[in-house]
Structure formats: C-alpha cells, structure tokens
Design a protein around this nucleic acid. Structure first.
Length: 496
RNA sequence: GGGCCAUUAGCUCAGUUCGGUAGAGCAGCUGACUCUUAAUCAGUUGGUCCAAGGUUCGAAUCCUUGAUGGCCCA
C-alpha cells in the first residue's frame, strides 16, 4: 500500500532520529510542573520585569507541540499538556547546534520534554525560553488543520482522542460531566448513603422494561443478560438493612440509537428506607438545583434556545392533570378501554394487542404531553400497569405513588415508593409474564429470589433512577448523548 | 422502520445546476527569515472524487443498488 506523503515525511524524520542514535520513544523525562501553574505564577508580572529569562528559575514541562512558527534562527511553538498550553521559544543563540538538529526532526504533534526559563515576549505572552529539549514521542500521523480543527462528526466520535487533541471545548464538556458525577457522590455520601456495586450480569431480566443484551457463561453453561437496571439488587440491600444505598453505573438496553439513546448508558439509582416518592421529589429538587449552581454558577441554565430554571419547587402534575391541561385529552374518555384505543389510533400510536388501559394512557401521555414539559416538571400517579415495582396509591389503587421528572421534553428521572407487599409483587410479575406471552418483548421476568426477599420484609422505601448522560447533556448544553459519552457506539468502520 | 441531506488530498472545503484535462487554503517538501501566534514571502509534491453496477464517444457530476454518518419522523 502506498504510504500517505505526510506520514512518509514524518517516518523519514523518525528514521533520521534512529540514525542519530536518538530513541523516539523514551520514558526517562519527568516534568515538574504543569503549564497552567507557570502561567498562574507569572501572570501578574509585566513584560519589562520579565524581559530576561536568566532572572527566573528553570522549569521542566512535557506535552504535545501544537503550532510551529519558524524564523530561521528562532522558532516559536506551543506545548499543550493536561492543564493547558504555554508558548516555548527555541533560539539558536541558546541551543547552538542542538537547534538545527531539533528543528529538522520536529513536527507539530510530537510530544516533547522541555526545560526552560520563563520570560514575556514583545506582545506580552508568557513564554519558556528552551534550554533543553527532548523528544518523548515521535508522532507519525498529521493532525487536522490548525484553524478549522476537526469538524467531521463521525471522525470526532470514532477518533475521540483526536477530537480532544484539537478541539479544546470538547474536553470542557467531559470535565463538567466528571465534576457533576463527583458532586452527586458528595451529595449522597453527605446524606449517609452507601455507594455500592451490584451485578452487571443478570440471570433474570428485571428492574425496568427494556430489551436486554444476551451473553453466555461457558463454564456454567448458562445464558446471562447485561443488566437493564440495578433496581432489584439495590432493594435486596434494603431488605438486608442498608437503609440508604446508591449506585452510579452502566445499564445496557438492546434498543435503537439516537441523539437520546446509547445502548450502554450511565444511571444513578438510589434507595432510601422510610421515605416516600414525595420525599424524593424534594430530594431531587435539592440535588438538581445544587448541581446547576455548582456547575454553572446559577439556577438558570441555558439549553439551546431555552433557559431551564432549576429553582425549587418544580411544577407538579398528576398524569391525568397533565393529559387534560397540556395534552388536551379529556380524562373522562380515558376511563373506557375502547375509547382509549380509539384515541391512541387517532394519534398514530401502534398497539400490539397486549396493552391495557394504563399502558395506552401512558403512551397517549408520551405522545401529547412529554415534549411540552420544558421546565423541570414532576408527573405523578402513573398507572399500575406500567409500574410493576411501585407501590399502589392509597386513595386510588389503579395508580402508583410514582413520579417521572421531565426537563426539556425528556424523561430525566423516574422514582416511586417501592412495592413491598410480596403477594402484590408476585401478581405483578405474573402479569408481566402474561404480557410476555402476548408479545411484549420488554416485559420483565418472574424473579423468585426477589419475592423471597420481600417475604422476609423490606422496610417502606422510596427509590429513584436518574439518567446521568441526559442530565450531563442539560448541564453542558449538549444536544446529542454522543457529545457526553467518551466513546459512543458506532457501526464498525471499514479499514483499508 | 420511513423521509431528507452529506461523503472529493492528512484536515477544512469549492467543483454537481447544464456530463468535456481534479481545484483552493492549511498541513508536507525546497529556499529566505531571531518576538511570532491562522507568522510572512517564493517555489513545489500530494487524488480508489464512499463502493459496485448502469447510461454515454466521454461520469466527481445523470440513473440504480449498497455502505457510513447527520437531521427529522415513527
């Protein structure tokens, strides 16, 4: 295969290095400071004070060369490390013969170790005057163009490392996501929750309604599923006496990919004994307003052309109220299954035959109301049929003590007071099995051990799940889930 | 699953209307240059035009199928 001319040019420099006895990939240089720290130290000094490098100490830095401006006997470049960038200045007067050798071998993209003293240039930019320079890694592929950077979305996702090298703002999104997750941990740790890890490989599909990924354990000759939710294990811990637990980890759902869906995604689930779904609404308001304030400095957060206001309390509607007030659907019509089916049909909702009234009402809600819920809004009183693990409402046993939180037209959180009546839970599982027989691929399975656990007794508990990726999207003003996932799933690329 | 759009040099993009020698900038290479920062100046290399078929004297361009990606809808 013919080598690209740019790669060939860089490989030629690599060969020259080898011919000169230089190791292109050594690991014996230790930087002693980050570039941002040097900038902090000398930011306030004037360029007159910093005219002469020999007045200042020598620093060792390491990073990637990000620009090369050569003038014959002197050359400027920038070095980029994890903290940022700093300009460096090579001078023949300082480096002697070493100057010509380095400049002959150096390309943008190479990783260098530099020792040098700081000064300020005519334009006032803090710069290190290079006194020693060592190649730490020779790059043999050209970087994308310096001005436009890397724009092609497919390449940005496939080669995220390149995206990070040339598109600085991308790193900020992920730094914010990481900070958000740290804050969430702090929030729950401070309230006495234990962070736990429960199995990712399940023998029984449960805890949510979704199609699972299947896998296989050879030694045990056993089919396993990647978990669609950790719920049933976390509640086993509540049975065991933990009282407050949370888990931040991956769930896997074998469904379509879109700007809102990645097959593996990160979920926060937490469970709190002796609490109700109403307590969790307050806790959720507290958590989200805390995150918005800590991450963006204010409770009003820009999201596209909208301003999302995280100031508590959030709006609350029962599902019926929301259908009536926002969806324009008459709740009296929804009391009859056949009328529900007609309304669903008029809204182009596809029914497979196993759906009962509760399921259809929920579908009508999603179709007519969901995208109108821009500001944070709790929707409560979900039908029992779509809430197989939630406690029934004391006044109306057809609905559950459950809420979903919607922001920017998307489901962000789902929570309920937990069903701890083993007999009721058993019947709900059996109903799920019936639906599975009727063709509901998302229906859960009967979990014998979970029922057994409930029979020992689970304290009254409330639990909630929050989609971390979607929350990160909101707080980083990102409009595709792929922009907040480091390596989103893509179809395989063709290699030449 | 359906509709629309995109795919041309390493990168960012023209060229497709109306078929007629494959283009620019950056990057690379050669040369000049000791305060630039998209350095500048002169010269220059580089192409499976996403893939496979078809129409045509002739296809990056028109047609068909497919691949990948994006947006919208379900």
């Amino acid at each position: 295969m013919e080598e690209n001319i740019l790669i060939e040019s860089k490989k030629n420099k690599l060969k020259k290095m080898l011919a000169l006895g230089l190791n292109p990939y050594p690991n014996d240089f230790k930087p002693n400071i980050h570039t941002a720290k040097i900038k902090d130290m000398y930011e306030s000094k004037s360029k007159e004070e910093m005219h002469n490098p020999s007045d200042f100490p020598e620093f060792s830095i390491a990073g990637r060369v990000m620009g090369l401006r050569s003038f014959g006997k002197s050359t400027f470049a920038h070095i980029k490390d994890a903290s940022g960038k700093i300009q460096i200045f090579f001078q023949k007067a300082t480096l002697g013969e070493e100057y010509d050798k380095v400049l002959e071998l150096l390309d943008v993209g190479d990783i260098l170790g530099i020792k040098g003293r700081p000064f300020k240039t005519k334009t006032g930019e803090l710069t290190l005057n290079v006194e020693f320079c060592k190649f730490l890694c020779k790059s043999i592929r050209p970087l994308p163009e310096k001005w436009h950077g890397l724009v092609d979305i497919e390449t940005r996702y496939r080669q995220r490392y390149l995206d990070f090298i040339v598109n600085e703002e991308v790193k900020k999104v992920f730094e914010k996501r990481i900070k958000m997750i740290k804050l969430i941990r702090k929030f729950f740790d401070d309230k006495g929750f234990f962070e736990v890890e429960t199995p990712m490989m399940h023998q029984i599909v449960g805890g949510a309604t979704a199609k699972p990924f299947k896998t296989y354990h050879n030694a045990l000759d056993m089919e396993l599923y990647l978990r669609i939710a950790p719920e049933l294990y976390l509640k086993r811990l509540i049975v065991g006496g933990f009282e407050r637990v949370y888990e931040i980890n991956r769930n896997f759902r074998n469904e379509g990919i879109s700007t809102q869906h990645n097959p593996e995604f990160t979920m926060l689930e937490f469970y709190m004994a002796y609490a109700t779904y109403e307590d969790l609404m307050m806790l959720t308001e507290e958590l989200l307003s805390y995150l918005a304030l800590e991450l963006n400095g204010q409770l009003k957060v820009e999201y596209g052309d909208k301003i999302i206001d995280f100031t508590p309390p959030f709006k609350r509607y029962t599902m019926e109220e929301a259908l009536k007030e926002l969806g324009g659907v008459d709740i009296n019509d929804l009391k009859d299954l056949e009328v529900c089916k007609k309304i669903a049909k008029s809204l182009n909702i596809e029914l497979k035959g196993f759906e009962g009234r509760g399921k259809i009402i929920t579908e009508i809600f999603e179709k007519t109301v969901e995208d109108k819920l821009i500001q944070p809004t709790f929707i409560t009183h979900f039908p029992v049929e779509v809430s197989p693990l939630a406690r029934r409402n004391a006044e109306n046993p057809e609905v559950t003590d459950r809420f979903e939180l919607y922001i920017a037209g998307r489901e962000i959180a789902n929570a309920f007071s937990e069903l701890n009546d083993p007999e009721d839970q058993k019947n709900r599982f059996l109903h799920q099995l019936e639906n599975k027989m009727k063709g509901d691929e998302e229906a859960g399975e009967y979990d014998y051990d979970y029922i057994r656990a409930l029979e020992y007794g689970m304290p009254p508990t409330a639990g909630e799940g929050i989609g971390i990726d979607r929350l990160a999207m909101l707080l980083t003003n990102s409009h595709s889930i792929r922009d907040v996932i480091l390596f989103p799933l893509l179809k395989p690329e063709k290699h030449p």
